[in-house]
Structure formats: structure tokens, C-alpha cells
């Protein structure tokens, strides 16, 4: 019960921090217009160690906040983060026993898929998105930037991650 409360507290504080980072820090470290997506990074990290409902709901809320902050259409990022968080949360937790390398790789892939989906949805709502150009100038750099951002963030979240790992029943544990 105590752990659950700590977990919720961490998620709330972490979400606020992610939003503030997105507003205050991210625009100022943008490289050639490519801005790291702190909200996406946080959603993926939370999805790694939490159940699907919680991850999906958090993704939705953070997505709405992200859309309100940006100047794009509202509703696109919630959809992206919902699907992304649900998918990441559905992965076998044993995958992450390998440590942060797997997590960062997962973040890279998740960011890539997330940006691709975001671009595709923008196209649907009427934006004129040139696929090849956006892939080279937006999607790939964003994914790399997010993964790099994740490298910085993961050590900060390490303590939390370790705590969560202990609570996840692994296959090894069951065999013993």
C-alpha cells in the first residue's frame, strides 16, 4: 500500500516535472528545430514498470497537456501516447532485466514509432506532411534526441526503476 502511494506520488511529481521540462528546457536545447519530447520519454519510462491501464491513462493526460502546449491540433498526441504506452506496458517485463541499454533502445524505437504515428495523424487532420523530408528532418532526429534525453533521465529514475523491478514477479523468481 505504501509502495503504491509512493508510486502514484512519483508519477504525479514526475509528470509535472516532465511538463515543466517540456516548456522551460526543451525549446532551449532544440537543435535545428528538433525539440526533445520529454513527455513521451516520461510516458515510456512509466509504461515500462506499470500496468497497461495506468500507463495508457497517463499517456492520454500527458498527451493532452502536450497538445495544449504546442500549436498543433489537439487530440493527436494523446492518441499517440495512449497507443505507445499501452504497447510498451504490454511487453514482457523480463526484457528489462538487462538494464538501461535495453530501456534506451526501447525508448529509441518507441520515439521513432511515436513520431511516425504523430506525423501520419497530422497528415490525416490536414497538415501537408512530406514523408521523406519529415523522416529525415523531424522523425529520425527526434527519436535520437529523445533517446539521448532518456540517457540523461534514466540515471535519475534509476532508483525508482530498481524499486519497481523488485515488485515485478520475474520468470526466474517463479522458477525458483
Amino acid at each position: 500500500m505504501g509502495n503504491q502511494r509512493t508510486n502514484i506520488l512519483f508519477i504525479v511529481i514526475g509528470s509535472l516535472a516532465a511538463v515543466l521540462l517540456q516548456v522551460i528546457v526543451a525549446p532551449n536545447i532544440a537543435i535545428r528545430g528538433v525539440v526533445p519530447n520529454c513527455v513521451l520519454v516520461f510516458s515510456v519510462v512509466i509504461a515500462i514498470y506499470n500496468n497497461r491501464t495506468l500507463s495508457c491513462s497517463l499517456g492520454f493526460v500527458l498527451g493532452i497537456v502536450f497538445d495544449l502546449l504546442s500549436s498543433g491540433p489537439i487530440g493527436v498526441m494523446p492518441l499517440v501516447l495512449c497507443v505507445l504506452a499501452y504497447s510498451v506496458s504490454s511487453l514482457n517485463k523480463d526484457m528489462f532485466s538487462g538494464g538501461w541499454v535495453v530501456e534506451v533502445l526501447l525508448l529509441l524505437v518507441a520515439s521513432l514509432l511515436g513520431e511516425l504515428l504523430y506525423g501520419a495523424l497530422l497528415n490525416i487532420v490536414g497538415y501537408d506532411i512530406h514523408f521523406a523530408n519529415s523522416l529525415i528532418n523531424r522523425i529520425l532526429p527526434s527519436a535520437v534526441f529523445d533517446a539521448a534525453f532518456g540517457l540523461v533521465v534514466f540515471p535519475l529514475l534509476n532508483r525508482f526503476s530498481q524499486q519497481q523491478r523488485k515488485e515485478i514477479p520475474t520468470l526466474k523468481g517463479k522458477l525458483r
Binding site: 528545430g33 504546442s70 500549436s71
Partner: peptide, 11 residues
């Protein structure tokens, strides 16, 4: 007072 918070808009 602020720059774009996402990569898809230059605002």
C-alpha cells in the same frame, strides 16, 4: 518568451 515545444511546428 518561448519557442516551439515540439518538432513539428516552428512557432
Amino acid at each position: 518568451i518561448g519557442w516551439s515545444t515540439d518538432s513539428w511546428n516552428r512557432v
